[in-house]
Design a protein around this nucleic acid. Sequence first.
DNA 1: GTTAGCACTCAACTCTCTCGAGTGCTAACA
DNA 2: TGTTAGCACTCGAGAGAGTTGAGTGCTAAC
Lengths: 348, 348
Amino acid sequence: MDLGERKRKILSSIVNEYIVGAEPVGSRHIAKNYGLGLSPATIRNEMADLEEMGYLEQPHTSAGRVPSVKGYRFYVNELMTGYQLTLQELDALRHMLELRVEQFDKLIGQISAMISRFTNYTTVLVSPEMRRGTIKSIELVPIDKGNMLVIVVTNEGVVNHKRVKIPDNVDEMFIMKFSQVLKEHLSGAVIGDINVQTISQIKQAMETNYELLFPVLDFISELLCDMEDGELYVRGEANILNFPEYSDVGKAREFFDFLSDPDSVREAIASKGTSDDIDIKIGTENKLDVMRDCSVITTNYYVGDKVMGRLGIIGPTRMDYAKTVAKLKRVTESINQLLHDLYFDDSN
Amino acid sequence: MDLGERKRKILSSIVNEYIVGAEPVGSRHIAKNYGLGLSPATIRNEMADLEEMGYLEQPHTSAGRVPSVKGYRFYVNELMTGYQLTLQELDALRHMLELRVEQFDKLIGQISAMISRFTNYTTVLVSPEMRRGTIKSIELVPIDKGNMLVIVVTNEGVVNHKRVKIPDNVDEMFIMKFSQVLKEHLSGAVIGDINVQTISQIKQAMETNYELLFPVLDFISELLCDMEDGELYVRGEANILNFPEYSDVGKAREFFDFLSDPDSVREAIASKGTSDDIDIKIGTENKLDVMRDCSVITTNYYVGDKVMGRLGIIGPTRMDYAKTVAKLKRVTESINQLLHDLYFDDSN
DNA sequence: GTTAGCACTCAACTCTCTCGAGTGCTAACA
DNA sequence: TGTTAGCACTCGAGAGAGTTGAGTGCTAAC
C-alpha cells in the first residue's frame, strides 16, 4: 500500500496545486511547474495509477484530477510539510492579539473571531465546561425589594448569575443568613459533584423557607445540566463564501443552517477522545452529511495544562491544511499564554 | 401630488404583487388578479403615469414595473393595510416565547434569535445602555490568592464583571474594607453620573493602596465608555439568502461583512430621535451604501415605560412591510411583557 | 375616458458550434 | 523496462444565432 517516491511527489503536487487553484489539475501543469523532470505522459500514467488506487478522482473524462478524501488523508498524514508562518502573518497575529476584553465570555467570543480572521476560515469554539469548575464564590445580591441575584464565580473566573424573586415573607436578614449558609456549603465544591446530599444539607441548615431555596437550587442544577457542555462561539461564518465551492447559495444556506444548530456543531468538533493533539477530519470522514465537502481541524486549548475548551476550524475539503495547522498551533500557544497571563499569573 | 383612488389601488397592487413574487409586475397580471374592472391597456396608461411621477421603475423596456423607493415609501405611509396575524403565526410565536434563559445577556441573544425566526429576516438588537442604569450593588470577590473579581450589578439586573489582580501587599481585610467603601459611595449611583469627584471621594476614604484602586476604577470607567452603547446582538444573518436579490454570493458576502461591523450596524438601526414608534427606512433612505437594497424596520423595546434597547429587522427593500410591522408590534409587546414578568414583577 | 389591436423591445432560453484542456493508448526510443 | 512523443478522443465551457414570450407604447375606434 506504500506509494513510491515519485507517486508521493506527484500526489503532493496535485493536492498543493488544487488547494490554491480550486480546479482539476492536469498532467501538463504538474510537469511544467513542479520540476519533477518527467514528461506529461509519464505523469499521466502515474495519475492513472493513483486514481485506480483511490487517491485521485476525475470529475469527468476530459478534466484533470482532483484529490479524493483518501488522497487528502494521505497528504495530511504523510506528505504535508510544516508551513513556516511568514513575518507578515506573525505580525498580523500580534496585532490581533492586542484586542483584549476582561470579561471571560466576551473574551472567548473575541478570541474566536480573531482566529477566524487570522485563518480566514469559520471558527468554532466551545468554552470551558462548568462541570469541571469549582465554586469559588456564591453571593446573593438583593437588587430591589422583590428580586435578588444569585452570582456564582468558578475558579476559572467564569461568572454566572440568575435573577430570583424574593417571596414576600423574606427579609434582608434571612437573605444574608442564606448567603452565608450557601457559602459555607458550596465554596470550593466541584460543580459536577454537587448532589442531592449537598442540597439536603443546605436545606437542613436553613430549616425553613423552601420558597427561596428552590429557585436558587434550580440555578445550581442549571449549572449542572444546561451549562454542562460549555458555551458555543461560532465566528467568521461568512468566510465560507470566499470559496468557489460555496458560490451556490443553496449550499451556502445549508452550511449556515448547520452552523446555527449548536448540537450539530458540537458533534462536528467533538474530539475523538484519544489524541490531545491537532485532529483533522476530512470530507466524508465527518459523520454529518452537510459536512461532506468540508474539513474540520480541531484541537483543545489549555490554560497551563488544564483543558479549557475545544476549538475547530471549518473550511472546504480543499482547505490549506499545512498553513492552517501551523496557524492553529501558533494561535493556540498565544491564547494559552494570554489566558495564563490574564487568569493564572502566579497561582493555581 | 395626491394620487387618485385608481392610481393608489394600482400602485398598491403592484407593490403587493412584487413583494410576494420578486418579479417585475405587468399590466395584464394586475388586470387579471386584482379585479379592478380595468383592461390591461388602461392599467398600462396609469402605470406610465406612476412611472413618470417616480413611484415605479422599469428594469428594461419590455419588463413590467417595480416599485421605486418613493413607491415603497408611499405604500408604507399611505397604502399599507394592517396585517392580521394568523392563528398559526400567533401559535408559533407562543411556542417560541417558551424558551427562556435567566441570564440577561443570554436572554437578549435568544430573544433576538427568536424574532429572527418569527419574521424570517435578519434581526439586530442593542441591549440596554449601561449609562442609564444605576449601580445596585458592587462587590469584590477574591477568587484565588492573586486575583479577585469586581462585580457590578445594575438596577436593570445586568451583571458586569472584571478580573483584577491583587497586589502582593494587599490582604483580605483591606479588600473587605475597600468593598465596603465602594458600596457606600457607589450604591444607587447613576453610572453616567459617576465622575472625577466621586472617584476622589473614594480615594480619600481609602487613603492608600492606589495600586488596587486603579484597576477597579478603570473598570468603572469602562462601564462609562466601552459599554456606553450597549451590547449588539445580530441573529438570523443567513435569512437574507432566502431572497433572490441576494442569490449573488458577492452581494451576500458584502451584506455579511456589513453585519460583522458593529459600528455600521449600530448606525443602521439608530433612531431618528423623534418618534418612539416603529420606524422604517427604505433602500437608499439608509445612509450606508451596503444598505441600498435593504430596508430596516426599527423600534425601541421597553420594560414598563423605560426604553431598554433598540431592535431592528433587516430585509430586502421588497420585504413584507405590513406583515413584518404587525409581527414586530406583536413580538415587542410579548417581550415587554416577558421582561416585565421576569424582572419587574411587583416593584420599580 | 376606455379599450382592442398591433408593432416593437428585450431578457431568457435553447440549440449548435467551436475551442481547448485534458485524457488514454500506442509505438518508438533509451 | 521505463519513458516519451504523437495522436485520436472526450467533454465542459463559452460564444453566437435563433426563438419565445412577457411586456410595453401608441393609435384608432368605441
